[in-house]
Structures are given as structure tokens and as C-alpha cells.
């Protein structure tokens, strides 16, 4: 059997595809397309109003997260418990400055 006679049946099988009836999209294709196009235009108009970094949800969420984290940090810093400072004029401050303790301070008396 030569090559052409071997190829021909396959070519005939593939050519059946050319004879298929053309498929049609569902009715009102254009109406649905118009609605999609309108939504897409509105979406791009809304996007044009926002800055570029807010147009992408990942950037917007990241920015929001960063703002919340900064607010929490500031709130914690503002409300930290105050460290009691010793008044330099008191007896306690004098003992602390000269690294004395109560036992040593009066040992020579």
C-alpha cells in the first residue's frame, strides 16, 4: 500500500470536520455582550478615580493592614505604664546614687 492510499482515509476523516453544521451561541448574544461591555467600562471608569495602589485588592488590603498596625503600635505606646522616677532630692535617691544600702549607710554610727 503506498503512502497516499494510506493517508487518504485519514484525510477523509479529518475533512468531516469541515462539513459540521456551524454552532451558534445562545440567543441574545449581542445583548449580553453589550451588558458586559457596559459593566467593563463602568469598572474602568471607577478604577480611574482611585489611585493606582488602590486599584489592586492586594495593595489596598496591604495598605489597610499597615495603617491598622501603625495605629495599634501608637495606641500601645501612648498607653504604656509610666516608670516611677525617683525624686533626686529624697533620701532614696541619695542611697541609689551612692550605691548604698540601708545596712551600710548607718554602720559607722
Amino acid at each position: 500500500m503506498n503512502r497516499n492510499s494510506e493517508d487518504q482515509p485519514w484525510e477523509d476523516r479529518f475533512r468531516k470536520l469541515k462539513k459540521l453544521d456551524r454552532a451558534q451561541p445562545r440567543p441574545y448574544f449581542y445583548t449580553r455582550l453589550e451588558a458586559r461591555l457596559k459593566a467593563r467600562i463602568e469598572q474602568s471608569e471607577a478604577a480611574a478615580v482611585l489611585p493606582w495602589w488602590l486599584q489592586k485588592p492586594a495593595y489596598a488590603l496591604g495598605t489597610l493592614g499597615l495603617l491598622i498596625a501603625m495605629n495599634v503600635a501608637v495606641a500601645l505606646w501612648q498607653n504604656r505604664p509610666a516608670v516611677p522616677e525617683t525624686d533626686p532630692g529624697t533620701y532614696e535617691a541619695f542611697v541609689q546614687d551612692y550605691q548604698l544600702n540601708h545596712q551600710n549607710a548607718f554602720v559607722d554610727e
Binding site: R22, A23, Q24, P25, R26, F29, R32, L33, R36, L37, R40
Partner: peptide, 24 residues
Amino acid sequence: VYNTALAIVQHPEEAEDMAQEVFV
């Protein structure tokens, strides 16, 4: 457009979606 998309994606709803995206 629809028939080409249909032959490649082999799914009528997805082919229609493709066809609409092409025209958009």
C-alpha cells in the same frame, strides 16, 4: 469566533464567554 473557541475549549458556555471577551 464562537466556533473557533468552541473547537478549542470544547465547552459551549466557556466558548461563549471567550467569544464575548474577544469582542470586548
